Computed example of a mutant assay.
Amino acid sequence: MEASGSMDLANNALARATQVFVKRQPEIHLFAARFKEHSGDIPGARASFQLVHTEISPGLLEATIKHANMEHRLGNLEDACSVYEQAIAVEKGKEHTQTLPFLSVQYSRFLLLVCCNVEKAREVLVLALENVQLSKPLLEALIHLESIQPPPKQIEYLDSLVEKFIVPSPDNSIVASIAEREELSIIFLEVMICLSKRIHREHPIAF
Score class of each variant (00 low, 15 high):
residue 36 K to G: 01
residue 184 L to P: 01
residue 130 E to Q: 14
residue 150 P to C: 01
residue 148 I to C: 07
residue 187 I to R: 12
residue 17 A to R: 12
residue 71 E to R: 05
residue 111 L to F: 05
residue 78 E to F: 10
residue 9 L to R: 11
residue 2 E to S: 12
residue 202 E to T: 06
residue 79 D to G: 10
residue 121 A to T: 04
residue 152 P to I: 02
residue 136 K to P: 01
residue 158 L to I: 06
residue 162 V to Y: 03
residue 114 V to W: 00
residue 101 P to R: 05
residue 13 A to R: 10
residue 126 V to G: 00
residue 106 Q to P: 02
residue 134 L to P: 02
residue 207 F to K: 11
residue 173 S to P: 02
residue 184 L to Y: 02
residue 29 H to C: 05
residue 162 V to Q: 09
residue 60 L to E: 12
residue 164 K to M: 13
residue 31 F to Y: 14
residue 168 P to K: 03
residue 139 L to R: 08
residue 104 S to A: 14
residue 85 E to A: 08
residue 168 P to L: 04
residue 93 G to V: 08
residue 160 S to W: 01
residue 43 P to C: 07
residue 142 L to M: 15
residue 178 I to N: 10
residue 148 I to N: 00
residue 167 V to T: 15
residue 190 E to D: 13
residue 131 N to T: 03
residue 94 K to Y: 07
residue 7 M to Y: 07
residue 125 L to Y: 05
residue 115 C to W: 03
residue 191 V to P: 01
residue 3 A to Y: 09
residue 70 M to T: 08
residue 15 A to L: 14
residue 169 S to Q: 06
residue 17 A to I: 14
residue 146 E to N: 08
residue 114 V to Q: 10
residue 200 H to R: 15
residue 200 H to S: 14
residue 28 I to D: 06
residue 174 I to A: 01
residue 200 H to K: 14
residue 35 F to Q: 03
residue 46 R to L: 12
residue 140 E to C: 14
residue 196 S to V: 07
residue 71 E to M: 10
residue 197 K to D: 15
residue 196 S to D: 14
residue 66 K to V: 10
residue 109 R to S: 13
residue 78 E to K: 09
residue 40 G to V: 03
residue 165 F to Q: 03
residue 131 N to E: 15
residue 64 T to K: 00
residue 159 D to Q: 13
residue 41 D to R: 04
residue 73 R to F: 03
residue 160 S to C: 08
residue 123 E to Y: 10
residue 26 P to W: 05
residue 114 V to D: 08
residue 1 M to G: 11
residue 33 A to L: 08
residue 108 S to E: 08
residue 37 E to P: 05
residue 2 E to F: 11
residue 33 A to K: 04
residue 108 S to Y: 05
residue 62 E to R: 14
residue 132 V to A: 03
residue 186 I to F: 02
residue 6 S to A: 15
residue 8 D to V: 13
residue 31 F to S: 10
residue 118 V to G: 02
residue 8 D to R: 14
residue 92 K to I: 09
residue 171 D to P: 00
residue 86 Q to C: 11
residue 139 L to S: 02
residue 20 V to L: 12
residue 74 L to S: 06
residue 9 L to P: 01
residue 12 N to G: 10
residue 63 A to R: 00
residue 40 G to F: 07
residue 113 L to P: 00
residue 89 A to G: 03
residue 21 F to P: 01
residue 78 E to I: 12
residue 34 R to N: 13
residue 189 L to W: 10
residue 128 A to W: 02
residue 168 P to R: 06
residue 159 D to R: 12
residue 100 L to N: 00
residue 95 E to I: 11
residue 55 E to Q: 15
residue 113 L to T: 12
residue 194 C to P: 00
residue 11 N to W: 07
residue 134 L to I: 01
residue 170 P to M: 05
residue 141 A to N: 08
residue 43 P to R: 07
residue 140 E to Y: 11
residue 17 A to D: 09
residue 30 L to K: 03
residue 149 Q to L: 13
